[in-house]
């Protein structure tokens, strides 16, 4: 039985629910979970119900890292730290945007916490608004494609690099589509002392507009096209990369998602896709994926 109980209110095919379950499968029961506001928080804890079979605390949207650091300090002060892992599990908005300052502070202070970002690339809980994690040209409700717009005009923020710059001993990217790899990385993050970070790519069927049965498939395509490189960094150095044998063109990833549909129908779309391909090419080169 999973420590994240079934019967929660996540969408069919929900990436968040998968990620939450994988994190707990990796950590086991001796952990305390801190959630910022977001889908995972809302669909798991409609009072008086809770899907969490581990101690769990939600405070606000932008303070999960600060709350987690307070939990860690309390356990230390009370002599209860021992092996208990403290993990914050936040969405991309809570992590890359509104909660960035609290994360920076917590990582600078060096608390023994794990921060897992479940990145579904927009504010899904409020209805698919763009965040700092939304990729170039994704159509969201606040960066919609329109007659004179190809959607979100900005590149995705490189959060793992920001965390690595704080001197974190362990930063990894993962994907819900690669469960064993993700769990291995969460486990490793837990074993390493100090503030560690796992950034999990999590395709959201509701926000990205694909069938709920395709979550894993879409996640795999992100990795196979080099749109989401999987790697580990230890003390600022890349130590492990998931290699790609036959890197696929980004169209294969884009065409299965409604949020990129306009790129295939609008005049000039093909040229814009080339810009996305350039991002994938840069990833492949920078991380040595091939």
């Amino acid at each position: 039985m999973s420590l994240l109980a079934p019967g929660h209110r996540g969408c069919a095919g929900c990436c968040d629910a998968l990620a939450g379950k994988f994190v707990l499968d990796a950590l086991g029961s001796d952990c305390i979970v801190v959630s910022p506001t977001g889908c995972l928080e809302v669909f798991t804890t409609p009072y008086p119900e809770s899907a969490w079979d581990v101690p769990w605390v939600h405070s606000l949207f932008e303070n999960a890292a600060a709350v987690a650091s307070g939990v860690e300090a309390a356990l230390k002060a009370l002599g209860k730290k021992s092996n208990t892992k403290i993990v914050a599990i936040g969405g991309d908005g809570a992590t890359l945007d509104i909660g960035l300052q609290a994360i920076s502070g917590a990582f600078e202070r060096g608390h023994d916490i794990i921060y897992v970002c479940i990145d579904n690339e927009a504010y899904m809980n409020t209805g698919v608004q763009r965040s700092g994690a939304t990729p170039l040209y994704a159509s969201t409700t606040t960066s919609p494609a329109g007659k004179v717009s190809f959607g979100n005009p900005l590149q995705k923020k490189n959060m793992p690099a920001i965390i690595a710059a704080h001197g974190s001993p362990y930063v990894a990217t993962a994907s819900v589509a690669y469960a064993p790899d993700m769990m291995k990385k969460v486990k490793k993050a837990a074993e390493i002392k100090g503030p560690t970070y796992v950034h999990v790519h999590a395709p959201c069927c509701t926000g990205w507009k694909f069938e709920g049965s395709k979550t894993i498939e879409v996640g795999k395509l992100a990795v196979e096209t080099a749109m989401w490189p999987l790697y580990e960094m230890e003390n600022g150095t890349i130590t492990n990369v998931r290699k790609l044998r036959n890197r696929k063109p980004v169209e294969e990833y884009l065409k299965v998602q409604g949020r990129f549909k306009h790129l295939f129908t609008m005049p000039g779309g093909a040229d814009e896709i080339k810009k996305i391909q350039a991002t994938a090419d840069w990833n492949a080169k920078h991380f040595g994926l091939e």
């Binding site: 305390i32 801190v34 605390v57 405070s59 606000l60 932008e62 303070n63 600060a66 709350v67 987690a68 650091s69 307070g70 939990v71 860690e72 300090a73 309390a74 356990l75 230390k76 002060a77 009370l78 209860k80 300052q101 609290a102 920076s104 502070g105 917590a106 600078e108 202070r109």
Partner: peptide, 22 residues
């Protein structure tokens, strides 16, 4: 445990976590 945090917002937030932990 004395925490020199990066803002008042994190000061109170850290105490929310610490207080919830007992």
């Amino acid at each position: 445990e004395s925490m020199n945090v990066e803002s008042e917002f994190s000061a109170i937030s850290a105490l929310i976590g610490a207080s919830a932990a007992g």
